[in-house]
Design a protein around this nucleic acid. Structure first.
Lengths: 105, 105
DNA sequence: TCCTTGTCTAGATGGGTGTCGAAACAAGCT
DNA sequence: AGCTTGTTTCGACACCCATCTAGACAAGGA
């Protein structure tokens, strides 16, 4: 973050951070990412929470619209997958280089 | 993100993402990070926005309570500085390794 | 065709939050 | 002391959002 972000860039990036800035959604994301095969259907996810199906569906929609995950229907189930490109993009904003070295000082 | 996050971990991390998941706050963060010397006083920041002083102060408080920035009073002005440790920590959750390689596939 | 299971949409509600103006606090200057 | 400038707290308001229930849509099997 050497160069200040413009108002537009901030709005775009903030949309992603906002999406994952909710405990349930962040946990959903981690469950999908760590699931075998890199995919998980909704039925794999709802069990981990004490929330109704529609609520989980709502959170998945928010993540999808933020570009953090993508879903594909195959037969009865819909499989969700993490979009690594998006995560890498926002992550690189927080820590410019790799991760270890430094910034403005 | 190989291991699914626990509910607790998610809550902690989400607090940070939520703080920077707001356009004004993300922009404030970038302004502070990219400011000469790694520090900026509120007077350096308010000019970049079409918002009242109290609103900027509110956003700075949210960032401070999330551990993303820290402030120190030196004479008349209060200087804010980014806490890189926090940013690195949350960034590493999104993209485990450095940035380039891989995940669950 | 009907039923079952998985998933989403619609509408409602309670709590959270971004924003403001006004007022208070802090520090320095005259 | 009193004034000025920088910054925060307080109280209020409008809007957003997480959650629910009920109902709709999709796909497969009897």
């Amino acid at each position: 973050m050497r160069e200040p972000l413009t108002a537009e860039q901030s709005a775009d990036l903030a949309r992603v951070f906002k999406a994952i800035g909710e405990p349930v959604r962040l946990r959903l994301l981690s469950l999908i990412a760590s699931h075998a095969g890199g995919e998980a259907c909704v039925c794999d996810l709802t069990g981990a929470f004490d929330l109704s199906g529609p609520t989980i569906s709502h959170h998945l929609k928010v993540l999808r619209e933020a570009g953090v995950i993508e879903g594909e229907r195959r037969g009865t189930w819909i499989y969700y997958r993490v979009r690594l490109e998006t995560l890498r993009a926002v992550s690189s904003v927080l820590v410019p280089a790799g991760s270890a070295e430094v910034v403005s000082a």
